[in-house]
């Protein structure tokens, strides 16, 4: 902000910014509000209850779906984040940056239903090709490789989440000075050691954020998961298909609210953590001697 700017105009702009954030959050907040009402949506009376949440945890279908969701989220994170890290390293060193960046970012631009449909038909055909190949050699070993299953859902979700992890990691890597890797090499560390001892500790925040993002994205995703999954359900697919079939029941309000609480808690704590860390780092830096170079 400029010294001559109107302070009230500045505050007005801030108010607008916060209002937009609030508007974006309104539906979610309203759902949370309704979810604690014993009389459900539209009732004249508001009676606080946790009854609807209790119903979720007594629903075996939902608990089973929750289990699948957690496993799916973990597997996708464990595979996709290292892949994004490798891609970011590759991108940094690549001479031709256009091809990798196009390949890694374009999934962002492909709408969920289009990506889901394309992959669904692709996997079904790939499965037929593998079965045919197996028949030629006389083995049924390949028969179920690309049948719609946990694997196909994982692949679809990796493609969906990689761009986000890639961008987050790339941004944190932007602050890293490559001279430090060279200095480590000059100290006798091999490439891996230099990465692990020197670079990784400095981009760790980005990698962890990417992990959190991926978990949340997988947890939230409906379209791609429901198109590509085999015979299992995730929490979101159960919830959405319930809402699509029977409309919003009090229980579905509670489920939506719960998913939102989890996501907001995770991201909120990351934001809070980075803010506090930046704050304390800033304070330390200010307290200590002014460095000549920075």
């Amino acid at each position: 902000m400029n010294d001559y700017d109107n302070i009230w105009l500045h505050r007005l702009k801030w108010a607008y910014l916060l209002l937009v954030v609030l508007t974006l959050m309104t539906p979610v907040i309203y759902v949370m509000y309704v979810s604690f009402n014993a009389n459900g949506f539209g009732a004249n009376e508001y009676v606080f209850t946790l009854e609807w949440y209790g119903l979720i945890f007594s629903d075996e279908l939902l608990i089973g779906a929750l289990g699948w969701t957690v496993i799916l989220a973990l597997v996708v994170t464990v595979v996709a984040v290292p892949m994004a890290l490798l891609s970011a390293k590759y991108y940094k060193a690549a001479d031709n940056k256009l091809f990798p960046i196009f390949l890694l970012l374009s999934p962002l631009f492909v709408p969920p239903d289009i990506l889901g449909s394309a992959l669904l038909v692709f996997f079904k055909n790939l499965n037929l090709v593998f079965i045919w190949l197996g028949d030629q050699i006389g083995t049924s070993l390949f028969d179920s490789w690309f049948r719609l299953s946990f694997l196909t859902a994982t692949i679809g979700l990796i493609i969906y989440t990689i761009p986000y992890s890639f961008v987050v990691i790339l941004i944190t890597m932007g602050r890293y000075r490559t001279e430090q890797t060279e200095a480590a090499r000059a100290c006798g560390a091999n490439g891996w050691r230099a990465f692990w001892d020197i670079e990784f500790p400095q981009i760790r925040a980005g990698v962890f954020s990417a992990c959190a993002f991926t978990v949340i994205l997988v947890f939230n995703e409906y379209t791609r998961t429901s198109l590509l999954k085999g015979g299992f359900d995730t929490f979101t697919t159960v919830l959405i298909s319930q809402m699509l079939n029977t409309g919003m029941s009090p229980q579905s309000y509670a489920m939506s609210a719960m998913v939102s609480f989890v996501a907001i808690a995770v991201i909120g704590s990351i934001i809070l953590f980075t803010m506090l860390r930046a704050e304390s780092l800033g304070r330390i830096a200010r307290a200590k001697a002014e460095p000549v170079m920075s």
Binding site: E179, Q180, A183
Partner: peptide, 8 residues
């Protein structure tokens, strides 16, 4: 190195 090469 010229600068920035210490492990922060």
């Amino acid at each position: 190195f010229q600068a920035y090469a210490l492990f922060p």
